[in-house]
């Protein structure tokens, strides 16, 4: 099945960047507004599924292999666990920090000026310590995971030509 009609493809070309940008916005502002890594990842994966429906699974699997998506998902998982373990590691670098697993080591310090401010309801994006980084890691993981599921299921159950 090689995609749908030209009208559907044109509408998809218009709508896909908007869906992508909205999903990335939801991921990036996860610590300020409703949303987060999972929700934004689901939005972006829905946009990619729309691409899959409009253009057909054979066209998409010519561009993206599920092995690459698997690698992306593993990168997301390793980033998430690595950020969790950095909470332990920080106690060796700065002895003043209380370190444990999933410690929010970027907040309440002044050495690293990255996401280290206290949120005060002013929609300041430079807040919340390690939470935005974890949002990005989980967002990457959810995008790659859900798109890999949809892509593999669509490609395995495709309608074969002349059969």
């Amino acid at each position: 099945m090689s995609g749908m009609s030209r009208i559907v493809k044109t509408i998809t070309n218009v709508a896909f960047p908007i869906v992508l940008i909205y999903g990335l916005y939801v991921i990036a502002h996860g610590h300020l507004t409703p949303g987060g890594g999972f929700q934004g990842g689901a939005v972006v994966a829905s946009g990619l599924a729309m691409l899959l429906v409009a253009y057909g699974s054979i066209w998409v699997i010519g561009k993206v292999k599920e092995k690459q998506l698997s690698i992306l998902e593993s990168i997301g998982a390793i980033g998430f666990i690595g950020l969790a373990f950095l909470g332990i590691l920080m106690v060796f670098i700065y002895s003043s920090f209380q370190g444990n697993f999933f410690n929010n080591f970027l907040i309440n310090q002044n050495e690293i000026p990255l996401f280290n401010e206290i949120g005060a309801g002013l929609a300041n994006i430079n807040t919340a310590g390690v939470i935005p980084l974890m949002n990005f890691a989980v967002g990457l993981k959810v995008i790659a995971g859900l798109f890999a599921i949809v892509l593999v299921m669509a490609y395995a159950t495709r309608i074969k030509e002349g059969k």
Partner: peptide, 24 residues
């Protein structure tokens, strides 16, 4: 939430900071 994690969104603070093992 605001003093300990710095996040404005309480749900995200719970998901990624207070209950990180759950998310793992």
């Amino acid at each position: 939430t605001q003093n300990e994690t710095g996040a404005d969104n309480g749900v995200t603070a719970v998901v990624f900071d207070y209950r990180g093992f759950d998310t793992l």
